[in-house]
Design a protein around this nucleic acid. Structure first.
Lengths: 233, 233
DNA sequence: CAAATAGTGTCTTTGAGACACTATCGT
DNA sequence: ACGATAGTGTCTCAAAGACACTATTTG
């Protein structure tokens, strides 16, 4: 009886092309976004090897033969930024031939969103990692390694779009937040000011009030809310 | 002076991990969607080798070392379906370890949309290709190779979403079409009936009337339209 | 004229947008 | 009382949804 028996690689490849294949390398690159000082920032590392020595680049790892892409992304998140359990989604796969001058590397990029608090304590994990504002990255005077400027700009667009039809904005905040805080996050991500009253009406269906309030400010206190999960009434 | 000098692979890899890497293979798989007999269908080929002999699978090729992912996708489109110059976008990259029982293969999937007319003449290109309706693919009685059922279902969702905020529906139609035809395409892609009057009001801003009308039908004739491109008034 | 499909007019409801107002803190 | 920020009420306008109507062809 025929079960899924092994077929040699040679035989297998001939099914497709009849030629040998030189394989590209596969890496995973991370786009770890957070909001600091009311600015959207990306975690980048300074390269201390060629090529692009001294330039900023996205943190990444090679994909091991025995780990999935998602696992590789999570490992990179742990090893390069010391973060776990945050929003993570596959973004796009970059396959230009000369994107790395040394060899052919296909990069599967992952988008990670994280509240600033979670990232603080791990700042000096691997290499010299740091949060870079998107303004600095757009600035042509700053050297960015590989095609990473393009990748970041792609990620920025994805965020802007997804804010409109998902709740990713909440990923930038701690579990409890005030509505003014939430509004600022939306304004940063969308890149425009919003009307307070309208924003609150729309947000109302997404959130649940807590009984905690801000204290100590020289103005009316603000209530803390949490994101309403599916199933909460 | 230091320019981007060559660094041995060994040395290069050590920067990341310090271990040797066994590389996965990288393939491109195509999801070629079209509408036939008022049903959404995908182009699939019947496998005549192990594994999954006799099962339906998505057409795909390995990525050559000297071609980009987009180029590989276009080549697959040409070689496996004989189609060119159609809507093509990268969908998602699948990297589970055992998605192929023979060896580690990472698959970059591409979504292609095509009007039925363009595909007709090339029906019997490579292998035994054929258009399979999504109902048949969901049917657990039909054997689908690899993780391709999951991939198709992911693509189906992407189409449903993108119909809402892009003009991809037009990719399923020839250059000239009637509004009833366009409405049917939208209904199939969205999976629900639409109100004619409302649909037409919304479509009005996207289309340009021609002076051609349908003829020969035992009812009022229908005007042909074209998609309004950016720049058309 | 009957059957069939193409195409239109209009009312209702919903939500986005804009603006003016009130509320509550610390000093 | 004042400055500052939190929070609300309400009007307008545009789009989505629902339904009833008219129009034009063939046989």
């Amino acid at each position: 009886m025929e079960n899924r028996s092994y077929v040699s690689e040679e035989e297998f490849l001939s099914e497709y092309d009849g030629t040998r294949f030189e394989k590209p390398s596969v890496a995973v690159d991370l786009l770890i976004f957070t909001i600091e000082d009311n600015k959207l920032k990306v975690l980048m590392v300074k390269r201390n090897n060629y090529p692009f020595r001294g330039c900023l680049s996205l943190p990444g790892v090679f994909v091991n033969i025995n780990e999935t892409l998602d696992e590789a992304a999570k490992r990179a998140l742990r090893q390069k930024a010391g973060i776990e359990n945050i929003y993570l989604e596959q973004l796009y796969t970059w396959g230009d031939i000369d994107r790395d001058p040394r060899m052919r590397i296909i990069s599967v990029s992952y988008l990670a969103l994280v509240p600033k608090i979670k990232i603080q304590s791990h700042e000096q994990t691997a290499d010299s990692a740091g949060l870079i504002s998107l303004d600095e990255i757009s600035d042509e005077k700053n050297q960015i390694a590989f095609d990473h400027r393009k990748i970041i700009s792609y990620a920025r667009e994805r965020i802007k779009n997804k804010v409109e039809y998902t709740n990713i904005a909440f990923e930038f905040l701690p579990q409890e937040f005030t509505l003014p805080e939430l509004q600022i996050v939306y304004e940063i991500l969308l890149g425009k000011k919003l009307y307070k009253a309208n924003f609150r009406k729309k947000a109302a269906s997404l959130i649940m009030p807590t009984d905690r309030m801000t204290t100590g400010d020289a103005h009316r206190p603000s209530r803390y809310y949490t994101l309403r999960k599916n199933g909460d009434e």
